[in-house]
Every structure is written in structure tokens, then in C-alpha cells.
């Protein structure tokens, strides 16, 4: 058994190429037990290749990879029984019903959760007798999640789990993930949705061109430089803008200097960067195409 100090996932210097394309190019990643980590990045950044290497589907060209203390390339049944995997883009087992599939897959595991409780937890109680071909995209995805958790995994991989969900389904899914975390499940999640990462993750890892370009808490990602507020105002009829770590002081200064008889500064705006702004700045910088954001975030 693994020692308590070893992380759930440890990746050092992962490399994987397909022909001439370097899909993963020196990626490092560490996920502690009990943590939810979101991997963000544009399409083709190497997210899925990385996750599928951790799941044992792909062999790394180079690098050190340990998942629950084992090399995924040589993971045995015992090791697989401790993982939950939700892959992208499944439309399998169309002719079986939700209930048949969840019970069937539960039987593969040494100590599964109660399949009926799992069906309830993912909100498929009313659809339990429906064949999977009759499910909507969101229901189908919830079935995927049910199959990912029915084995009561220590570590759960969620690869773009809410693609195609409507907003309500996405919120229900987030509640489900929080419940799993409260039960101690470690989760590694890839997503396109910044809001999803912000709601779910203890830590966000941004990947571009096969390597990590930034990591941190959803609040702290990008560091103070990337999170400087922008203050806008109008002076002598022209729009002005300044990036600052101390917007309150700047606004006070502008008030002293420019306030009219009504005490107002013309066109005053204070803009705080969202996670999306920070993320887009990081990706633009990684592409080498960043313009003003590039300099402002001082990467």
C-alpha cells in the first residue's frame, strides 16, 4: 500500500509525441489526496493525452508518472479498482438500461457503492429503466459519472465532464462533485469552463502547448501582477487607463485631482480581472501572441 505522504498523482517531465507533434512537452503535475485539481487549457494543449497517460491508456515517451503510487503503464486490476474514469465522448452500451449497466459495472469492483444509491446521486432515478440510447446528452454524461464512481474510487478522473450540459444540469453536477469530495474522493478534472474550475477546484493548473504555464488557487492564479485592476477615466475629453495593484489609492488621487463640482470623476471605472481574463492572458502569453495583456501580466 502507498504511504500517506505520497501524492495521489505525481507527474514529472512527461513527454509524449505523435509523429512530429509534441502533444505533451515536459509537463509536471502533483495532486494530493483529497484535493480537487482542475486542468485548464485550449484544445490540443495536451490535457487529454496527459489524463489518458495517467489512466494507463497511453505510454509516456519520457518522464516519471505515478498514480496511487504505481506506474499506470503497469497498473494491475487492484490498481484499476481504486480509480474511477470518466472518459470523453462515449456512446456505448446503447441497448442496456441505466439500471442494468450500473449494476453490471458495479460487479467488476471489490467493494462497490450501492448501485441504486449511485443512480439516485446522479439524478437518473426516473430514467433507470430507459435504454441508454434514449437518454439525452446530459443524462448520458451523468450515467458516465455514475459508472466512474460506482466502484467507490479513491481517485476520480473527469475528462470534460459537463460538455453539452445545460446550466441547471451543470449546477447539479457540481453539487455531485462537492459531495464526492466531502466523502474524501481525490478528483482530477479537465475542463474548458472557467466557472467550473472556479466552483470546483482547490487548485487550477493551466496547460498550453503540452506544458504547465501557471498553477494556483482559482483566486490566486497568475499572481498579483496578472490580477492588477484596471482603472479607467476620462481626462481632457480623452479616455485614460492605468493598471494598478492599489486601485483605491488611485481613485482617491484622481478624485482630488479631477473631481468636478458634483464630486464625480468623468467616466470612472474599476475593472477587476476575472479568472477568464487571467486565463486568456496566460494562454496568449504561452502562444507568444499576447499583446497588451502580455506586458501587463509580466510573464
Amino acid at each position: 500500500m502507498t504511504t500517506t505522504s505520497a501524492p495521489a498523482v505525481l507527474v514529472e517531465g512527461l513527454h509524449k509525441r505523435y509523429g512530429a507533434k509534441r502533444a505533451v512537452d515536459g509537463l509536471d503535475l502533483r495532486v494530493e489526496h483529497g484535493e480537487i485539481v482542475a486542468v485548464l487549457g485550449p484544445n490540443g494543449a495536451g490535457k487529454t493525452t496527459t489524463v489518458e497517460t495517467l489512466e494507463g491508456f497511453r505510454r509516456a515517451d519520457a518522464g516519471h508518472v505515478r498514480v496511487l503510487g504505481e506506474d499506470p503503464a503497469h497498473g494491475d486490476r487492484r490498481w484499476r479498482s481504486r480509480l474511477g474514469v470518466v472518459l470523453q465522448d462515449n456512446h456505448d452500451m446503447a441497448e442496456a438500461t441505466v439500471r442494468e449497466i450500473v449494476h453490471h459495472v458495479a460487479g467488476f469492483y471489490p467493494a462497490p457503492r450501492d448501485p441504486e444509491a449511485v443512480i439516485d446521486a446522479v439524478g437518473l432515478r426516473e430514467k433507470r429503466s430507459a435504454r441508454t440510447r434514449a437518454l439525452s446528452g446530459g443524462q448520458r454524461r451523468r450515467l458516465d459519472v455514475a459508472l466512474g464512481v460506482v466502484g467507490d474510487p479513491e481517485l476520480l478522473f473527469l475528462d470534460e465532464p459537463t460538455t453539452g450540459f445545460d446550466p441547471q444540469a451543470r449546477h447539479e453536477f457540481w453539487d455531485l462533485v462537492h459531495a464526492l469530495r466531502d466523502e474524501g474522493t481525490t478528483i482530477l478534472l479537465t475542463t474548458h469552463y472557467l466557472e467550473e474550475a472556479e466552483r470546483l477546484a482547490d487548485r487550477v493548473v493551466v496547460v498550453a502547448d503540452g506544458r504547465v504555464v501557471a498553477e494556483g488557487t482559482p483566486d490566486g492564479l497568475g499572481g498579483r501582477q496578472a490580477r492588477r485592476a484596471r482603472v479607467r477615466w476620462t481626462e481632457d475629453g480623452a479616455p485614460r487607463e492605468e493598471a494598478t495593484e492599489t486601485p483605491t489609492a488611485l481613485v482617491a488621487h484622481l478624485t482630488d485631482r479631477l473631481a468636478g463640482p458634483d464630486g464625480e470623476v468623468a467616466g470612472l471605472q474599476v475593472l477587476r480581472p476575472t479568472l477568464e481574463d487571467v486565463y486568456l492572458g496566460l494562454i496568449a502569453a504561452a502562444d507568444g501572441t499576447g499583446a497588451t495583456t502580455h506586458e501587463e501580466t509580466d510573464l
Binding site: E32, H33, A214, E215, T217
Partner: peptide
């Protein structure tokens, strides 16, 4: 920026420790 040396990059902040309850659960599970 360098992606391979997180401690020296300004973009990196300390990792959030896992919730205490979660860690305890994981330990009992093992």
C-alpha cells in the same frame, strides 16, 4: 515564463491543503 520551476514563478501560489475531513477519510479508507 518557465513552467518547470514553479517555486520561482510569480504565477505560483502555495497549494491549498486538502480539507482535513477528506484527508482523514482517505486515511481510514487505506
Amino acid at each position: 515564463m518557465s513552467a518547470t520551476t514553479p517555486p520561482t514563478t510569480p504565477a505560483t501560489t502555495p497549494r491549498t491543503p486538502p480539507p482535513a475531513g477528506a484527508a482523514a477519510h482517505a486515511t481510514t479508507r487505506r
